[in-house]
C-alpha cells in the first residue's frame, strides 16, 4: 500500500495495463501534447490533469496518440480499433463533449455486440472528466452518467477513491464491453491508500464505506466523500448511517442496496446527476418496488436542482448538494432532529 492521489492511481492503472497488454492504446486530445508547434515534439500536456504524463516516453506515440479536436472521430476510431483487435482507452476531455460524439456511443459501441448477434467484442474505455465545483460553467461541468447508464450495452464506472480509480480502470480496460469511465474533476488531488502491483476492482460490486443500521445512504463519485463526512458526524450523535458506493451504475449492485435497505429500513440517495430520470430516481424506485415492506420512511433524494450548472460559484455552490442538506435529509428520514 502507498498513499497516492486519484490522478496517480489512474496513471498507475493505465501504465500497468499498457505494460501487461501491448494491444492497449490511448487516444485523445493532448494526451501527450506538443506535436507541431514551435517547441519541438516534447510532451506539452500529458492529459488535461496530467494522468498520461510520461506515457509517450515509455510507450511511444504509436500507442499514445494525440488527435485533433475531433470527438466523433476519436470515439469512432476507438470503436473501429476495438472491433479489430486493440483495446483502446479513448479520452473525451470533458463529459459534456459527448454531445459531439453521442452517435458513436449510443448507436455504435453500445449496440455492436447485440445487433451483430454476439459475434464481436467491443473493449473500448472512454475516460472522461465530469462534475461541478470548478466554476467551469454549463458546458464543462455536467454529470451525464445517468443518461449513459440508461443505454443498454454501455457499462459505467464512477470511481470515488484513488484505490477504486486504479482498480476500476484496470477492470474497465480488461472488460470486453464498452465502459464509460467517469472521473470527477474535483477528485484528482484526493489522496488515499492504493494497493501496489496488479489491482482489480470488479464491476457491479458496491463498496460499503461506512457500516450502519439506521439509514442507508447511497452515493456516487465525489458525493461519496460528502456522505462519509456526514456519516462520521452523525455517528458521534448516535445516528448510524450505512454508506454505499455502488462504484458502477451499470452493472448496478442492486443486491447490496436492497440488503442494506432491508437492514436499515430507510434510504437516502445522494447523486450529483440530474434529479429527473437520474440515479437517485432509479435507486429510490428500486427500493420502492423491491423493498417496500422493509421501508420505515419514504426514500429521499438529494440531487442538484433541475437546472444547468451555473458558472458563477455563488450559484454553483447552491446547485451542489451541501453537507448541511445531506445531514438535514438524513435527520428527517430517521426522525431525529439536531440536539
Amino acid at each position: 500500500m502507498a498513499i497516492k492521489t486519484y490522478r496517480e492511481a489512474l496513471s498507475d492503472a493505465l501504465a500497468q495495463e499498457m505494460r501487461r497488454d501491448p494491444t492497449v492504446i490511448i487516444l485523445g486530445e493532448d494526451v501527450v501534447g506538443g506535436l507541431g508547434g514551435t517547441a519541438g515534439e516534447d510532451e506539452a500536456a500529458g492529459g488535461t490533469f496530467g494522468v498520461t504524463a510520461g506515457f509517450a516516453a515509455e510507450f511511444g506515440r504509436r500507442r499514445v496518440i494525440d488527435t485533433p479536436i475531433t470527438e466523433s472521430a476519436i470515439v469512432g476510431a476507438a470503436n473501429g480499433a476495438a472491433l479489430t483487435g486493440l483495446r483502446p482507452v479513448a479520452e473525451v476531455m470533458f463529459m459534456d463533449f459527448m454531445g459531439v460524439c453521442l452517435d458513436q456511443m449510443l448507436n455504435q459501441m453500445a449496440k455492436f455486440r447485440y445487433m451483430f448477434g454476439g459475434k464481436c467484442d467491443v473493449p473500448v474505455v472512454i475516460r472522461t472528466l465530469m462534475g461541478a465545483g470548478f466554476g467551469a460553467g454549463p458546458q464543462h461541468s455536467q454529470n451525464l452518467y445517468a443518461m449513459l447508464t440508461a443505454i443498454p450495452g454501455l457499462k459505467v464506472a464512477l470511481p470515488s477513491s484513488p484505490a477504486d480509480a486504479k482498480g476500476l480502470l484496470a477492470t474497465a480496460i480488461r472488460d470486453n464491453d464498452p465502459v464509460i469511465f467517469c472521473e470527477h474533476k474535483l477528485l484528482y488531488g484526493e489522496t488515499g491508500e492504493v494497493p501496489d502491483g496488479e489491482y482489480l476492482v470488479p464491476f457491479g460490486k458496491a463498496n460499503i464505506t461506512r457500516s450502519g443500521t439506521d439509514v442507508t445512504l447511497v452515493a456516487f463519485s465525489r458525493m461519496v466523500l460528502l456522505a462519509n463526512k456526514v456519516a462520521d458526524k452523525l455517528a458521534r450523535e448516535g445516528i448510524s448511517v450505512e454508506v454505499i458506493d455502488p462504484r458502477t451504475t451499470s452493472p448496478l449492485d442492486r443486491d447490496a442496496i436492497l440488503a442494506s435497505v432491508g437492514k436499515t429500513g430507510r434510504l437516502v440517495v445522494l447523486d450529483e446527476s440530474d434529479p429527473y430520470c437520474g440515479m437517485a430516481s432509479e435507486i429510490t424506485a428500486l427500493a420502492a418496488t423491491e423493498a417496500f415492506s422493509s421501508l420505515k420512511a419514504a426514500p429521499a433524494k438529494i440531487t442538484p436542482p433541475h437546472t444547468p450548472v451555473p458558472s458563477t460559484p455563488h450559484l454553483e455552490q447552491l446547485w451542489l448538494p451541501s453537507l448541511e442538506r445531506i445531514e438535514n435529509t438524513i435527520r428527517a428520514t430517521v426522525g431525529k432532529r439536531a440536539a
Binding site: G137, Q139, P308, P310, S311, T312, L315
Partner: peptide, 23 residues
C-alpha cells in the same frame, strides 16, 4: 453570471454566444 467567460451572449447585438464546445 450563469454563463461566465465561455458563454457571453447578447441577442440584441446579434451575438449568438461564445461557446465552450469546439465546433
Amino acid at each position: 453570471g450563469k454563463g461566465g467567460s465561455m458563454h457571453i451572449a447578447d441577442m440584441s447585438k446579434g451575438m449568438l454566444g461564445a461557446n465552450a464546445i469546439v465546433g
